[in-house]
Design a protein around this nucleic acid. Structure first.
Length: 455
RNA sequence: GAGAGCGUAGCUCAGUUGGUUAGAGCGUUAGUUUGUGGCACUAAAGGUCGGGGGUUCGAGACCCCUCGUUCUCCCCA
């Protein structure tokens, strides 16, 4: 018998953690619904065909594949061996695996939309909160099983959707109490930059490089661009672009001077200005234009978002953007969409670090009834059921032991109240309610217990 | 896919140039205390030193392999 363990990159969540995570999930779900989004759940596994080729070469390698059943069937040994040879040759894997764990929520959503396109009311707004799996090597803040919280709108090109999604970000993080900067850019502006540098085909290289500006600094970005065969003049243009600073208005002015006469660029700037002009909250706009924001995923075509928590050392805690033709991959072309995602695990870490979880999140048992004998228990049990029917979480201690044990149990489980109903109380129809936090107790009638306020 | 660090009690960790029977704190259990918890004191349980091989009179320590885990790069949430 070996020691039990967990698969690499997975976690157990104990009660305290589950409560806190649920607080985050509930906040996000509530805001999603408040903005008119409806829930969708899809299976943990998808057909391998659905996933392969959607995440790039790297992404394909990180998909957890599920071994077909019945490979050990003696009648099929020959076939299985041949199929496995194909896998080793990097070819068709159908004979060995044809299902895989979902890698993200976006592609399953696209699959769902493609399958149900005729029945959907457009624009279709759905949200989805489910775990995804990646065969990545785990490291700080990165797991092989983690939750994503996505909200997407498909079937509408209106920039109003972008405004709504930015509003969701602003609302959720305000509710959670996390100070954030919601960064916004447009892929069209990046495309314009690439055009300006004479290499529309270089857009991917350029975006990948400048996305790292925060991390590696300007000099290393320039070095990386040089290795991608960009000329000195092109790199110089990009440097000018990256050095744009100031508030939103100042940045836009500077950007217009740099690439303002480029048609694609103008469209991008127009998009940004549109979104910035909506009052998302009662306060000033929490949106920050950031022209260095690129986002790795290549299917983005318009506005892109990224959320960064302030005052903490942490990567982005949310991101998203517009994509023009996601379901085209599944045979339904011309369905534009835009979506955002929340990184729950990182949000958790940020809230833990900034101590933002409210105390009431930890609500466990409120009242412990002491076990002081069979006759006493019967009376206590009835009273306990009354409390439970009022939604007050209660327990009756499991055995008749000395007070010491029962008190210590309450203390360890952080149960704030104990109710003592012994032979004496049984005889005169009372019970003793003790507040362990204040170390104060009072005797009340049993009839009054149901109306007692357990603060 | 590439690189680095760490594996000693349930947890956090000590363990001297390699030397007798591997320790501490916390936690757990029991007791001091059969109607009043937190504190204190006493005692107990708990280890194939991740696994395998090697060097040595002798290995928790040194060498090789392996497994696990953490971190960095790549990429990503």
């Amino acid at each position: 018998m070996s020691k039990p363990g967990l698969p690499q990159g997975t976690r157990d969540f104990s009660a305290a953690v589950v409560h806190k995570r649920n607080y985050i999930f509930q906040t996000i779900r509530h805001v999603f619904e408040c903005y008119g989004f409806q829930p969708l759940e899809t299976p943990a596994m998808e057909n391998l065909d659905t996933l392969m080729g959607k995440y790039g070469e790297e992404g394909d390698k990180l998909i957890f594949k599920i071994l077909n059943n019945g490979l050990d069937n003696p009648d099929k040994h020959q076939q299985a061996k041949e199929d496995f040879e194909k896998v080793l040759a990097g070819k068709n894997t159908k004979g060995i695996t044809e299902r895989a764990l979902r890698y993200d929520l976006t592609i399953p959503f696209a699959r769902y939309v493609a399958m149900n396109y005729g029945q959907l009311t457009l624009p279709f707004k759905r949200y989805q909160v489910q775990p995804v799996w990646r065969a990545d090597r785990p490291q700080k803040g990165r797991y092989r099983e983690f939750y994503q919280c996505d909200a997407d709108v498909v079937g509408s090109k209106s920039l109003l959707n972008e405004v709504e999604l930015a509003g969701i970000y602003a609302t959720v993080f305000e509710k959670l109490g996390i100070p954030v900067e919601i960064r916004i850019n447009s892929r069209k502006i990046l495309a314009a930059l690439a055009e300006l540098c004479g290499g529309a085909d270089k857009m991917v290289d350029i975006t990948v490089a400048i996305d790292k500006l925060d991390k590696i600094g300007l000099e290393k970005v320039k070095t990386e661009l040089a290795t991608k065969n960009l000329t000195y003049a092109q790199i110089n243009t990009i440097e000018q672009y990256l050095s744009i600073t100031g508030d939103n208005a100042a940045k836009i002015t500077a950007l217009k001077q740099l690439i303002g006469n480029n048609e694609t660029g103008l469209k991008g700037i127009e998009e940004i200005e549109y979104v910035l002009n909506y009052p998302l909250t009662t306060h000033h706009s929490p949106l920050t234009t950031d022209f260095t924001l690129a986002r790795g995923l290549n299917y983005y075509t318009g506005i892109i978002f990224e959320v960064k928590a302030l005052n903490v050392q942490m990567g982005s805690i949310g991101g998203g953007g517009r994509y023009d033709d996601l379901t085209g991959l599944f045979g339904v072309p011309n369905v534009p969409g835009v979506g955002i995602s929340f990184g729950v695990d990182r949000i958790y870490d940020v809230m833990e670090e900034l101590k933002l979880f409210p105390d009431e999140v930890q609500a466990g048992t409120r009242v412990l009834f002491f076990n002081l004998g069979e006759a006493e228990n019967k009376q206590a049990f009835g009273l306990m059921q009354q409390l439970r029917s009022k939604g007050i979480a209660s327990e009756l201690f499991h055995e008749n032991t000395k007070f010491d044990k029962q008190f210590k149990y309450a203390e360890k489980k952080q149960i704030p109240y104990v109710v003592i109903l012994g032979s004496e109380e049984l005889a005169n129809g009372t019970c003793l309610v003790k507040d362990l936090r204040k170390s104060e107790q009072q005797s009340i009638t049993q009839a009054a217990l149901a109306d007692f306020v357990f603060l």
